Amino acid sequence: MSTVHPAYAQLRRVTDIASVLLENNPGMMTLDGTNTWILHAPGSVECVVVDPGDNDEEHLQRVAGIGPVALTLITHRHYDHTGGVDRFHELTSAPVRSVDPTFLRGGASALVDGEVIEVAGLKLRILATPGHTADSVSIVIENDASVLTGDTILGRGTAVLDDTDGDLGDYLTSLRSLAALGEGLTVLPGHGPDLPDLQAISQQYLAHREERLAQVRDALTTLGESASVREVVEHVYSDVDPKLWPVAEKSVNVQLAYLRR
């Protein structure tokens, strides 16, 4: 069986510390499925799990069976990353930490921007990267030259900004923060394959967002300032399969809020 992405139900090693179990929940928003990351420092018996996935018993059992879990971390609130939190906590008894207090388990405290977590031989730095959602964080693995980016940066394509609490201004700032971490860092995303250079992909994401924003501005010039979200989507995303337009509407909603603010 394949040991490269996508490899369902297989523990695929990506770096010296980070391995991934791909959940079999592919879809328009999840791409090939949700990446559940398992961080295991050499010489440590325990591991840290990032984003256990949705409430898929088979997947959760498989992740829990990898070894003693010292801590579970959540990159953001979306169900495909958090739906299995309760069951995973039952299976492992490991505390669960996130920005959103909804998902805290085992007496854990909320994640704080800039804090460094030392657990199971790992040194993990929390970097607030809101924009996709208000509670999004990335996790810098200090002893591994890699960064878990959740849905802020994906392994392919570009991230959709949630029009419930996503914010384009925050997102652009987050991309700049990730780019500023420097060269040579491996991207460990919430969906899609791992990528070799965080700085390069962050800069590509920034260029793409600026390009789309310019297209939205041009659309408003052509269609009028009161143009609807769907009208803007049809104008800007004419080169995209119409089946994806409902997804594009979310990002356009956020872009229009940014421009009209």
Rank of each mutant, 00 (worst) to 15 (best):
E90V: 14
E90Q: 15
E90Y: 10
E90W: 06
L91E: 02
L91H: 07
T92W: 06
T92K: 10
T92S: 08
P95D: 04
P95V: 03
V96A: 05
V96S: 04
R97H: 04
S98Q: 01
S98A: 15
S98L: 05
S98M: 13
S98G: 14
D100C: 06
P101V: 08
P101Q: 06
F103T: 02
F103A: 04
F103Y: 15
L104C: 08
R105I: 13
G106N: 09
G106H: 13
G106D: 08
G106L: 13
G106P: 12
G107R: 08
G107L: 11
G107T: 11
G107H: 09
A108V: 07
S109V: 12
S109Q: 13
S109P: 00
S109N: 14
L111M: 05
L111P: 10
V112H: 11
D113M: 01
G114K: 04
G114S: 01
V116M: 02
I117Q: 01
I117K: 12
I117A: 03
I117Y: 05
I117F: 05
I117E: 11
V119Y: 03
V119Q: 08
A120D: 01
A120P: 05
A120H: 00
G121Q: 05
L122H: 07
L122M: 03
K123A: 13
K123N: 13
L124P: 03
